[in-house]
Computed example of a mutant assay.
Amino acid sequence: MDSKTYISSGILELYVAGALSEKENQEVYEAMQKYPEVKAEVISIESAIVQLTAFAKKDDSYSFDAIKNQLTVDEAKVIPITKPSKTNNWKQYLGWAAAVVFGTTLIFSVLQNNKLKTQLASEKEVLEAQIDSASTSLAAAEKLIEIFRDKDIISVPLAGQTASPTSYAKVYWDKKTNSIYLDAKGLPEPPKGKVYQVWSLKLSPLTPTSLGTLDSFTADANKIFTITNANESEAFGITLEPAGGSNTPTLEQLYTLGAVSS
């Protein structure tokens, strides 16, 4: 039997699996000594089995020697094995191969199951966060409704000015808590590098006091802002200023203005 016949016959896989008779083991051993390509094929088969088994056992120290155990020996000795029929040889080999495939498939299934559990846990956390956020938003909305309906709250409409005639806003001033609630839905998106700044105004003499900038204007979907105001305000205005705000209002960029009713 030449080297190509040995390689294509399937006998080398049976040799590696330890499923040959003593005589057949000896014949393969001699062929390995005679044909380097036969020996290389045996080494290749052993390497493939080592990789499969090492994956299944998750143990880097698990070597082919542990798989073979007493199925093969060194070059000076062949283990005597009772010769089975060719049908039984193939049954043994196929059973062994099926066990490896089944074990690998089972491990893959376990890994996929763990991955799915992790994904579901992550989605559950996201859903819970969304529910919490929705609950918080609902509570905030209910609080605002109560504030807007409070008879002691001062409502101040802010009309559009020359810089932006179509703009509008509204201030709800709660003097008991020194707070204003600014509804800025009627303002356009500020240009890049610009920010809206809110001013409390005394009219005589005209004295502006900054109440801060609306830095989160673009990100805030509701455009309702809570601002501290302990001033004796007579009017409120909103200007468009460079990012970071200004010490005094830029009157040419006055977007809205409204006086507090006496």
Rank of each mutant, 00 (worst) to 15 (best):
S3N: 02
L14F: 05
K23L: 13
N25C: 10
Q26P: 02
Q26C: 09
A31I: 09
M32V: 04
Q33N: 15
Q33F: 11
P36A: 10
V38C: 02
A40Q: 12
I43K: 13
I45L: 14
V50D: 06
L52Y: 02
L52V: 02
F55W: 04
A56S: 07
K57D: 05
K57Y: 09
K58L: 13
D60P: 12
S61A: 14
S61K: 11
S63P: 06
S63Q: 14
S63I: 12
F64R: 06
A66R: 15
K68A: 15
T72S: 12
D74P: 00
D74K: 04
E75Y: 10
E75R: 10
K77N: 07
V78F: 05
P80L: 05
P80R: 09
K86T: 11
T87K: 12
L94R: 14
A98Y: 13
V100D: 03
V100K: 07
V101D: 08
F102V: 14
F102I: 14
T105K: 14
F108G: 09
F108R: 13
L111I: 15
L111P: 05
L111N: 13
Q112W: 11
N113T: 14
N114W: 07
L116I: 12
L116K: 13
K124Y: 15
E125F: 10
Q130E: 06
Q130S: 03
S135G: 15
A139C: 11
A141K: 12
E142C: 08
E142K: 11
K143C: 10
I145M: 08
K151G: 03
D152G: 05
I154Y: 00
L158A: 01
G160T: 09
P165D: 03
T166E: 12
S167N: 03
A169D: 00
K170S: 06
Y172W: 11
D174Y: 03
D174C: 07
L182S: 01
A184W: 00
P190V: 04
K194G: 05
V198A: 01
W199K: 01
L201R: 01
L206M: 04
T207I: 07
T207E: 08
S210T: 14
T213N: 08
L214F: 06
F217K: 04
A219C: 08
A219E: 15
D220F: 07
N222D: 14
K223R: 11
I227N: 07
I227P: 02
T228W: 04
N229S: 07
A230D: 14
E232G: 11
A235D: 01
F236I: 03
F236T: 01
G237L: 03
E241C: 02
P242I: 08
P242N: 15
G244S: 07
S246T: 12
N247H: 09
L251P: 02
Q253P: 03
Q253N: 15
G258W: 01
G258Q: 02
S261W: 02
S262D: 12
